[in-house]
Amino acid sequence: MRSSLISNRLLMILLAVLSFAAMQAFAESRYVTENSQAASMESCVAPTDLMRRNHMDFLQHGRDDTVRDGVRGLKYSLAECIDCHASRDAKGQAVSVTAEGEFCQACHGYVAVSPACFQCHRTTPDESGSGKSLGYRLDGHSRALDMQQPAGR
């Protein structure tokens, strides 16, 4: 009886230690793809946890402002997500964010969602220059660096 109590306790401690390690790994993980602009940056335009949880709401809110009211240069922009998170292959070619294992696909695949964004929105940075006049990339991505660091990071 007593020995089983001890082993229970040991089990609890073991579990606690394991979950501690897992959560710490989670808290410190970065979830960006190698060779993307995002990999070289401290954080996203908002704290990573917030973005991970709410990016779809941020984008959905902004899309009406932009399409229907012509408000541009919003903080949350799908085009900017793609510019920053698309990784580059060995030749320097941008890889689609919806390709296997890439930034958008990896997570959407993991949680089994298929958002319709990419039926209309391109999945690599637009390097043709046709979006120049959109205004949102006038000063690159300096804006994302302006922010304070999230707590505990």
């Binding site: 009211d69 408000v71 304070q148 707590a151």
Partner: peptide, 21 residues
């Protein structure tokens, strides 16, 4: 690592590029 609870996050440059529409 230091915990800094209650830090209000804001992107300092976010408003200035937003057009009025």
């Amino acid at each position: 690592l230091t915990l800094a609870p209650g830090v209000i996050l804001h992107a300092a440059g976010s408003a200035d590029k937003t057009t009025s529409g």
